[in-house]
Simulated assay, not measured.
Amino acid sequence: MTTWEYSTVPLLTHSTTQILNTWGEEGWELVSVTQGPNPENLVAFLKRPLN
């Protein structure tokens, strides 16, 4: 059975792709995105297998 680790990451709307690509290069998979504390911010929920 796979064991996962999780992370939450604040996303800035002007650099969302760059931020997600950086985390993706480190093996993180995007699970969900939700609105942050204000409409200009998003929060990404990520997971990757725990080694």
Rank of each mutant, 00 (worst) to 15 (best):
E40M: 11
P39I: 07
P10A: 15
H14L: 13
V43P: 00
F45D: 00
E29W: 01
S7D: 11
L12A: 11
G36K: 09
P37L: 11
P10H: 02
Q18I: 06
L42N: 02
L50N: 10
E40I: 05
P49Q: 12
V9H: 01
L12N: 08
W4K: 05
P10I: 14
L20P: 01
P37F: 14
S32W: 07
Q35L: 10
M1G: 13
P49V: 15
P39D: 12
T22R: 15
L46E: 01
T2K: 08
E40V: 02
P39M: 15
Y6T: 10
L42V: 03
V43C: 09
L50Y: 06
T13F: 05
T8K: 06
L12V: 12
Q35N: 03
Q35E: 14
E25P: 02
T17A: 07
E26Q: 15
P39K: 12
P10L: 14
T3H: 04
N38I: 03
A44M: 04
L46D: 00
T34N: 06
P49Y: 00
N51M: 12
G36S: 06
T22L: 10
I19G: 00
L11S: 04
G27Q: 07
W4V: 15
V9K: 07
E26G: 07
E40F: 10
W28A: 08
E40N: 11
P37R: 09
V43S: 08
E40H: 10
N38K: 12
S7I: 03
T22Q: 13
T17W: 00
L46H: 04
N51T: 15
S32Q: 12
T34D: 03
L30I: 01
P49D: 06
L12R: 04
W23K: 05
N51E: 14
W23A: 13
R48L: 01
V33E: 02
N21C: 10
T34W: 01
H14K: 08
G24T: 00
Y6E: 05
L12M: 07
L46N: 02
N21L: 01
Q18G: 08
T8R: 05
G36P: 02
V31N: 00
W4M: 14
S15H: 10
L46S: 04
L42T: 00
W4I: 03
G36E: 00
L20C: 02
G36L: 09
W23H: 14
Q18N: 08
S32F: 11
T2P: 03
T8P: 01
L20A: 04
L12E: 10
P10W: 00
P37W: 09
S32H: 12
P39C: 11
P49W: 01
S7V: 01
S32M: 13
L20Q: 10
G24W: 08
V33K: 07
V9M: 08
W28N: 06
M1W: 04
P10V: 07
